[in-house]
Amino acid sequence: MNLNTFLLALAGLVLAPLLGGLAAGVDRVVTARLQSRLGPPLLQPFFDVGKLMSKAIAPASHWQGLFVRWALAASLASDVLLAAGGDVLMCFFVQAASASFVALGAFCGSSPYSKLGAQRELFQLLAYEPVFLVAILCMAKAAGGFDAFSIMAAQGPLLLRLPLVVPGLVFVVLVKLRKSPFDIAASHHMHQEVVRGVYTDYAGRDFALLELAHWADVTVVLWICSFLWATGPLQMLATGLAFLFAALIIDNISARLTWRTMLKRTAPLTLILATANLVWLYLE
């Protein structure tokens, strides 16, 4: 590993959660404006996490704290992998491990809402992971390599060769950002028992670390989406923002679907489209 790779990895470790936090701030401001409200300051998510860090509360289970830290470590590791130009497929698996740790931690809780939320989190994993995997396979096939630098160095925008992957990636972004209509396990804006089930028993510092892990996850997912137009850093940023704003608009104009609809309709449909794109790339 040379010095450049090390510095890139370090930048990924520090900047990725901060960018995720900024995305959360943009989300809250834009959502408020869409609802004719002024909304909180842009840095409000950072104040929220700072506040949660300084709260004193007994954990619901000692295992929960362990799983939260593993989830944070896995999320940050996926950021580091991407920043250092590592294998995108490996990054995907590490990120999936992080989501599993969150569900495992919720299973450790004593509240029935927490267990319900954990089950719904697993349903979400089951729905979006195959779509995300096929989307990454498509990118790698179109770009000719699985490492992030190869995909970013691909000739021309990948979007022109991967149009059928876009619905799948929008689905993945909606689920990972915890947005309607797929905010099944934990809604970003709603705060009732079932729609925020997976977070029920997390509190205080554990909840703050979980939020940091979520920010890191958001950065990874938007970063992978930005590979669709990776002709330059600005174009990648614009693509990532386009996915973020698409998710915000859909969140504000749609009602929550049931997990059955997500699992039986949306997931197969987006998976078929992405697979069709993959087959097309092989036949080309």
């Binding site: 809250r28 705060h191 028992e193 028993d201 509190a203």
Partner: peptide, 18 residues
């Protein structure tokens, strides 16, 4: 939207632990 307490960072949560 008339009062919009989220301006001050207020969120109405449904969980005492939060």
């Amino acid at each position: 939207p008339v009062y919009d307490v989220e301006r001050f960072g207020v969120i109405n949560v449904g969980n005492p632990r939060h």
